[in-house]
Amino acid sequence: MTKNILLVGVGGQGTILISKILSVGLVQKGYDVKMSEIHGMSQRGGSVTTQIKYGEKVYAPNIGEGEADIIISFEKTETIRALPYLKKGGTVITDVHEIYSMPVLTGTVEYPHDAIDVLEKSIPNVIVVKAAEVAQKLGNTRAQNIVLLGALVKSMKLDDIDWEPIVAQFVPAKAKDVNIAAFRAGFEM
Protein backbone atom coordinates (compact mmCIF):
# COMPACT_ATOMS: atom_id res chain seq x y z
CA MET A 1 0.00 0.00 0.00
CA THR A 2 1.43 3.37 -1.01
CA LYS A 3 1.93 5.96 1.74
CA ASN A 4 1.71 9.65 0.92
CA ILE A 5 3.64 12.31 2.85
CA LEU A 6 3.02 16.00 2.19
CA LEU A 7 5.61 18.49 3.45
CA VAL A 8 4.61 22.14 3.51
CA GLY A 9 6.37 25.31 4.53
CA VAL A 10 7.71 28.60 3.29
CA GLY A 11 10.56 29.00 0.77
CA GLY A 12 13.91 28.68 2.57
CA GLN A 13 12.77 26.53 5.52
CA GLY A 14 14.45 23.36 4.33
CA THR A 15 11.50 21.21 3.27
CA ILE A 16 13.45 19.93 0.28
CA LEU A 17 16.40 18.80 2.41
CA ILE A 18 14.33 16.55 4.64
CA SER A 19 12.49 15.12 1.67
CA LYS A 20 15.89 14.17 0.23
CA ILE A 21 16.87 12.51 3.51
CA LEU A 22 13.52 10.71 3.63
CA SER A 23 13.88 9.44 0.06
CA VAL A 24 17.35 8.03 0.69
CA GLY A 25 16.21 6.24 3.87
CA LEU A 26 13.11 4.81 2.22
CA VAL A 27 15.12 3.59 -0.78
CA GLN A 28 17.61 1.91 1.59
CA LYS A 29 14.70 0.10 3.17
CA GLY A 30 13.79 -1.25 -0.27
CA TYR A 31 10.71 0.83 -1.01
CA ASP A 32 9.90 2.29 -4.40
CA VAL A 33 9.94 6.06 -3.81
CA LYS A 34 8.77 9.08 -5.73
CA MET A 35 9.27 12.64 -4.63
CA SER A 36 7.84 15.71 -6.26
CA GLU A 37 8.63 19.35 -5.76
CA ILE A 38 7.87 22.57 -7.57
CA HIS A 39 10.65 25.06 -8.32
CA GLY A 40 10.50 28.50 -9.83
CA MET A 41 8.17 31.20 -8.57
CA SER A 42 7.69 29.43 -5.23
CA GLN A 43 11.23 30.25 -4.10
CA ARG A 44 10.56 33.92 -3.44
CA GLY A 45 9.01 33.67 0.01
CA GLY A 46 5.93 31.85 -1.26
CA SER A 47 4.36 28.62 -0.03
CA VAL A 48 6.40 25.50 -0.79
CA THR A 49 5.18 21.92 -0.95
CA THR A 50 7.14 18.71 -1.37
CA GLN A 51 5.49 15.34 -1.78
CA ILE A 52 6.86 11.90 -1.05
CA LYS A 53 5.14 8.65 -1.91
CA TYR A 54 6.54 5.24 -1.02
CA GLY A 55 5.43 1.65 -1.22
CA GLU A 56 6.03 -1.52 -3.20
CA LYS A 57 5.40 0.27 -6.51
CA VAL A 58 4.57 3.97 -6.82
CA TYR A 59 3.00 5.42 -9.95
CA ALA A 60 1.77 9.05 -9.80
CA PRO A 61 4.36 11.29 -8.12
CA ASN A 62 1.98 14.00 -6.94
CA ILE A 63 -0.63 13.90 -4.18
CA GLY A 64 -4.21 14.98 -4.91
CA GLU A 65 -6.80 16.40 -2.52
CA GLY A 66 -7.79 13.97 0.23
CA GLU A 67 -4.81 11.69 -0.50
CA ALA A 68 -2.12 12.57 2.09
CA ASP A 69 -1.63 10.06 4.92
CA ILE A 70 0.35 12.65 6.80
CA ILE A 71 1.04 16.37 6.53
CA ILE A 72 4.27 17.75 8.01
CA SER A 73 4.07 21.51 8.31
CA PHE A 74 6.83 23.97 9.12
CA GLU A 75 4.50 26.92 9.59
CA LYS A 76 1.16 27.40 11.28
CA THR A 77 -0.90 28.83 8.42
CA GLU A 78 0.69 26.56 5.84
CA THR A 79 -0.80 23.70 7.88
CA ILE A 80 -4.23 25.19 7.35
CA ARG A 81 -3.62 25.77 3.64
CA ALA A 82 -2.62 22.11 3.16
CA LEU A 83 -5.61 20.57 4.96
CA PRO A 84 -7.68 19.81 1.82
CA TYR A 85 -4.95 17.32 0.89
CA LEU A 86 -5.33 15.32 4.11
CA LYS A 87 -6.87 11.87 3.85
CA LYS A 88 -9.85 11.28 6.11
CA GLY A 89 -8.36 10.09 9.39
CA GLY A 90 -4.87 11.23 8.36
CA THR A 91 -2.28 12.73 10.72
CA VAL A 92 -1.02 16.31 10.93
CA ILE A 93 2.37 17.10 12.44
CA THR A 94 2.72 20.84 12.74
CA ASP A 95 5.12 23.37 14.13
CA VAL A 96 3.58 26.42 15.82
CA HIS A 97 6.17 28.63 14.13
CA GLU A 98 4.77 31.77 12.50
CA ILE A 99 6.07 33.44 9.34
CA TYR A 100 4.15 36.47 8.14
CA SER A 101 3.34 36.86 4.47
CA MET A 102 3.26 40.26 2.77
CA PRO A 103 -0.51 40.84 3.25
CA VAL A 104 0.00 40.16 6.98
CA LEU A 105 3.12 42.36 7.20
CA THR A 106 1.31 45.28 5.61
CA GLY A 107 -1.64 44.76 7.92
CA THR A 108 -4.25 44.06 5.21
CA VAL A 109 -4.95 40.53 6.49
CA GLU A 110 -4.90 39.34 10.08
CA TYR A 111 -2.74 36.38 11.02
CA PRO A 112 -4.77 33.60 12.73
CA HIS A 113 -2.54 33.02 15.78
CA ASP A 114 -5.06 30.52 17.19
CA ALA A 115 -5.04 28.35 14.04
CA ILE A 116 -3.54 25.29 15.71
CA ASP A 117 -5.88 25.44 18.73
CA VAL A 118 -8.82 25.51 16.34
CA LEU A 119 -7.28 22.69 14.32
CA GLU A 120 -6.84 20.48 17.40
CA LYS A 121 -10.49 20.96 18.27
CA SER A 122 -11.62 20.14 14.73
CA ILE A 123 -9.70 16.99 13.79
CA PRO A 124 -8.38 14.07 15.83
CA ASN A 125 -4.79 13.32 14.84
CA VAL A 126 -2.85 16.53 15.38
CA ILE A 127 0.68 16.37 16.75
CA VAL A 128 2.07 19.76 17.73
CA VAL A 129 5.86 20.00 17.64
CA LYS A 130 7.62 23.18 18.67
CA ALA A 131 10.41 22.36 16.23
CA ALA A 132 11.66 25.87 15.57
CA GLU A 133 11.83 26.54 19.29
CA VAL A 134 13.62 23.27 20.00
CA ALA A 135 16.10 23.94 17.20
CA GLN A 136 16.80 27.38 18.59
CA LYS A 137 17.44 25.93 22.06
CA LEU A 138 19.85 23.44 20.50
CA GLY A 139 21.67 26.42 19.03
CA ASN A 140 20.75 26.27 15.34
CA THR A 141 17.35 27.51 14.13
CA ARG A 142 17.99 25.90 10.75
CA ALA A 143 17.70 22.45 12.36
CA GLN A 144 13.91 22.95 12.59
CA ASN A 145 13.46 20.62 9.63
CA ILE A 146 15.43 17.81 11.26
CA VAL A 147 13.36 18.05 14.46
CA LEU A 148 10.26 17.60 12.31
CA LEU A 149 11.92 14.68 10.53
CA GLY A 150 12.38 12.96 13.90
CA ALA A 151 8.71 13.45 14.74
CA LEU A 152 7.68 12.13 11.33
CA VAL A 153 9.86 9.02 11.62
CA LYS A 154 8.24 8.22 14.95
CA SER A 155 4.70 8.85 13.75
CA MET A 156 5.11 6.81 10.55
CA LYS A 157 6.90 4.02 12.50
CA LEU A 158 9.92 4.26 10.25
CA ASP A 159 12.45 3.81 13.07
CA ASP A 160 13.72 0.51 11.66
CA ILE A 161 15.72 2.64 9.23
CA ASP A 162 19.08 3.95 10.47
CA TRP A 163 18.41 7.68 9.92
CA GLU A 164 21.29 9.31 11.77
CA PRO A 165 24.04 8.47 9.23
CA ILE A 166 21.77 9.74 6.44
CA VAL A 167 21.11 12.99 8.30
CA ALA A 168 24.85 13.37 8.83
CA GLN A 169 25.46 12.84 5.14
CA PHE A 170 23.13 15.68 4.11
CA VAL A 171 23.96 18.43 6.61
CA PRO A 172 27.21 20.47 6.74
CA ALA A 173 29.90 18.68 8.78
CA LYS A 174 30.09 21.40 11.42
CA ALA A 175 26.30 21.22 11.95
CA LYS A 176 26.26 17.42 12.28
CA ASP A 177 26.03 17.14 16.06
CA VAL A 178 23.28 19.70 16.42
CA ASN A 179 21.25 18.03 13.68
CA ILE A 180 21.61 14.58 15.23
CA ALA A 181 20.46 16.11 18.53
CA ALA A 182 17.57 17.75 16.66
CA PHE A 183 16.55 14.42 15.13
CA ARG A 184 16.53 12.72 18.55
CA ALA A 185 14.62 15.60 20.11
CA GLY A 186 11.96 15.36 17.41
CA PHE A 187 11.74 11.59 17.76
CA GLU A 188 11.34 11.75 21.51
CA MET A 189 8.65 14.42 21.51
Binding site: G45, T77, I80, R81, P103, P112
Partner: peptide, 10 residues
Protein backbone atom coordinates in the same frame (compact mmCIF):
# COMPACT_ATOMS: atom_id res chain seq x y z
CA UNK B 1 -11.57 23.66 10.03
CA UNK B 2 -12.99 27.14 10.52
CA UNK B 3 -9.74 29.03 9.96
CA UNK B 4 -8.49 30.61 6.81
CA UNK B 5 -4.83 30.84 5.85
CA UNK B 6 -3.76 34.30 4.73
CA UNK B 7 -2.46 34.33 1.15
CA UNK B 8 1.30 33.98 0.72
CA UNK B 9 2.22 35.33 -2.70
CA UNK B 10 5.89 35.25 -3.75
Amino acid sequence: VPVEAPPRPP
